[in-house]
């Protein structure tokens, strides 16, 4: 019997599979397809202090082996999310991770503090890497000292374990990871999307109204694997890995690179059942490659 369970700060996961923030809304739509209680956890769409209406459309564009998006953190605000979405998700036997975003240090603190009021949220994912809004946190996500500051502030404001979501749009990912670890991060979540652009030939204009968007999907998987591989050897906190996962083999690859759990993003759009199907398939893939548990596979791809 393959053991899929994994213990992370604040999160006793029955399996390492969770939908990635922004790709699953607040779970409602996907709950029509399968029991969300099957998931290790759900990472909710980003919450800001007050509601945001997001960017103009088009907001998505397909690319070779990936997609660009610039949604712009559209969300109803943390208080409404607490009232309607957290209470909805809490009916399922799964862990809830709240992704928090902001444009100022104070906004991050406010959102983090607000989630102290519910017992149903088990951890925070600190979004300092949204590339799609002018002050959506990316400035916190590309400078190690700024990243450390916001991590420290959120840790102080919150009672929950904090997983800092790192941006790949940096030269030195290890220094970012080390900076937030030193500032008290309980874990890392990586990677967010890579900034990209696509130009539409007939109109000669960027296809996405925001001009740039975040690239996700299988196109970015090798970048995610490389960054997790580098970071996992340099920090002592667990990593939730993400970036283009499409199947259970991809999950194992992330574990081998040093991730302790994974999030599935873009693949949910093509196949709403993908997380559920990967959970079913993972034991077979672990067995196939000689592992009896998820725990056993973590970091086993690192060449000394």
């Amino acid at each position: 019997m393959t053991n899929l369970a994994i213990e992370l700060p604040g999160l006793s996961l029955k399996n390492p599979i969770m939908p990635a923030s922004g790709c699953f809304g607040f779970g409602r739509e996907y709950s029509d397809f399968y029991d969300l209680g099957k998931l290790g956890a759900v990472i909710m769409k980003a919450a800001t202090a007050t509601g945001r209406i997001g960017n103009p459309t088009p907001r998505v564009a397909e690319t070779a082996s990936g997609m660009l998006n610039a949604i712009g953190l559209q969300n109803p605000g943390v208080y409404k999310i607490m009232e309607t979405e957290v209470s909805f998700l809490s009916q399922f036997d799964t862990k809830i991770i709240a992704n928090i975003a902001g444009s100022t240090l104070e906004e991050y603190e406010e959102v983090a503090h607000a989630f102290n009021e519910t017992e149903h949220v088990h951890a925070l994912e600190l979004n300092i890497s949204c590339p799609n809004v002018k002050e959506g946190g990316i400035q916190f996500g590309t400078d190690p000292s700024m990243a450390a500051r916001v991590t420290e502030a959120v840790k102080k404001a919150s009672n929950l374990p904090v997983y800092v979501k790192l941006s790949p749009n940096v030269t030195d990912i290890v220094s970012m990871a080390k900076a937030v670890e030193a500032a008290g991060a309980d874990g890392l979540s990586m990677i967010n999307t890579i900034t990209g652009m696509q130009i539409h030939l007939p109109s000669r204009k960027p296809l996405i109204a925001n001009r740039t968007g975040g690239l996700s999907g299988p196109a970015i998987k090798p970048v995610a694997i490389r960054m997790i591989y580098e970071v996992s050897q340099q920090v002592n906190i667990p990593i939730i890995g993400m970036g283009g996962i499409q199947n259970a083999e991809d999950v194992l690859e992330f574990l081998l690179a040093g991730a302790s759990a994974v999030a599935i993003g873009t693949a949910n759009f093509q196949n709403p059942f993908i997380c559920s199907e990967i959970i079913d398939e993972l034991p077979n893939i672990l067995e196939k490659y000689g592992f009896h548990s998820v725990q056993e596979a973590i970091g086993k791809g690192i060449v000394s």
Binding site: G22, C23, F24, G25, R28, E29, Y30, D32, K45, G54, T57, P58, R59, V60, M67, N69, I71, Q74, N268, F269, P272
Partner: peptide
């Protein structure tokens, strides 16, 4: 994106 209301595209 998703076609079912989850991605806000």
């Amino acid at each position: 994106g998703c076609g079912i209301g989850a991605c806000f595209a």
